[in-house]
Amino acid sequence: MQQREFLARARKALIKHGIIGSRAKALLEEWNDHLQSEVEKLVAGGQDRESSYHDACKALGEPESLVDSAAKQLAMESWQGRNPVLSSGILSVVVFLLGILVMVGGGFLLIAGWKNLSTEIMQSLITFINTLPWIVGLCWLAYHARKMPLGWKGLWFVTAFTAIVPGFMGFFFEPPTNGPGTGSMGFFLTWISYKPFDFILKFIITLGLTSFFWWFQTRGKKLEDEGQTLS
């Protein structure tokens, strides 16, 4: 394996672990310098350049294992990484409360000014507000999932939770069809108004998205394991 191939594989593995941007760049630069320094040492010792590159890459180990241990180290640096169960629990509660806060806050703003808006805009805004906790949950957890050993499975669990619970509450809106002053709007919190279709749709989307990312993150490792078993 040559240096370029080594770094390309390391870069790919870093992306798979969610290590991107300046962090990934710094690590790649360090490993590149490490490789080159080792090559220079071997060449100074009388070895030819090509075999030196090969030996230097071999000494550094498989790029995927190198990235694995770097990712573990990076995960250990965060509170989430060191306390996966507790942080998943706390994050779930925070995401849920944040979602409810957005939903209630946005809804009350709409109640305050709904007479100035058209029925269509109002209906769209209410749908958006009722879906917001789920979107907030998904985005927040997507950002944090890479630091958590539970990874995308944790994301799936929490977003499924946020898809279920806010389904029991939200805002209803009845357009003023019988002229000005008619129609109503309010906040509901009831088991009866629960919309199974809405939940099932969100559940399927969440499951599909997170399963894809989970598969994407682990497929390299699985292929490697299979390769080792075969050989």
């Binding site: 360090e30 190198l66 241990s69 573990k72």
Partner: peptide
Amino acid sequence: YGYELVAKIHSISDGAFSFGEGCIYPI
């Protein structure tokens, strides 16, 4: 620099400490 540190740790500890380049750079 990084390579120097890794080599130094390895040589001073007579190979007893070999933390690996995947672990040292993030630290």
